[in-house]
Measured scan of single mutants.
Amino acid sequence: MSDQEAKPSTEDLGDKKEGEYIKLKVIGQDSSEIHFKVKMTTHLKKLKESYCQRQGVPMNSLRFLFEGQRIADNHTPKELGMEEEDVIEVYQEQTGGHSTV
């Protein structure tokens, strides 16, 4: 019986991991920090939209990076291997420009 009891508790931990929340720091170019608590399985588009709304800027005017890689709207913290207190960097999107060649 103890084996049966242990097995469901392991499964519960697996389920808990799926719905687990982590805190992420979003740091802007001006070094301002906003902290977000997100589920591991939530699409990061929600975090990006919330950040842009707080900053009063359109979402397409900023780019969000985690460990140097651009974050897509459909990425989740779990897919990117994010952990508690990880940092997302935000930069002004640069458009235009010309070749110097």
Rank of each mutant, 00 (worst) to 15 (best):
V87I: 14
G19A: 11
D15T: 05
E85S: 12
M82V: 02
S9T: 12
A6C: 14
K23S: 11
M59Y: 10
D3C: 04
K78C: 06
E79R: 05
T10V: 14
Q29H: 08
K46H: 12
Q4M: 09
R70H: 15
S2M: 12
L44S: 02
E93T: 15
P58K: 12
K39T: 07
T10W: 13
E79F: 03
V87H: 09
E84Q: 14
C52R: 05
R63K: 06
K23G: 06
S50P: 04
Y21Q: 14
K46V: 09
D12T: 03
H98I: 08
K45V: 10
Y21I: 10
K39C: 05
G19P: 10
D30M: 05
A6F: 12
S32N: 12
S32G: 12
M82N: 02
E79I: 06
I71Q: 02
F64N: 00
K23W: 15
S32R: 12
M1C: 07
L47M: 08
A72Y: 13
L44R: 03
L62C: 14
P77D: 03
N60K: 06
K7S: 09
Q53T: 15
N60T: 05
K78P: 04
S2F: 12
T42M: 07
I34H: 05
S2Q: 12
E5P: 14
G68N: 06
K45G: 15
Q53N: 07
Y91A: 06
H35D: 09
H75T: 10
T10F: 12
P77W: 00
E5Y: 13
D12H: 12
E89H: 04
G19R: 14
E89L: 13
K39G: 15
T95K: 03
E20N: 15
Y51E: 03
Q94H: 08
F64E: 00
T41S: 12
D3H: 12
V87N: 09
S31W: 15
K17R: 13
E11C: 08
E84M: 00
K46I: 12
E84Y: 11
T42H: 05
Y21H: 15
E83Y: 12
K45L: 11
E83D: 11
G19N: 12
D30G: 13
P77F: 02
D3W: 05
D15R: 12
G81P: 02
D73G: 02
I34K: 03
K45I: 14
T41H: 05
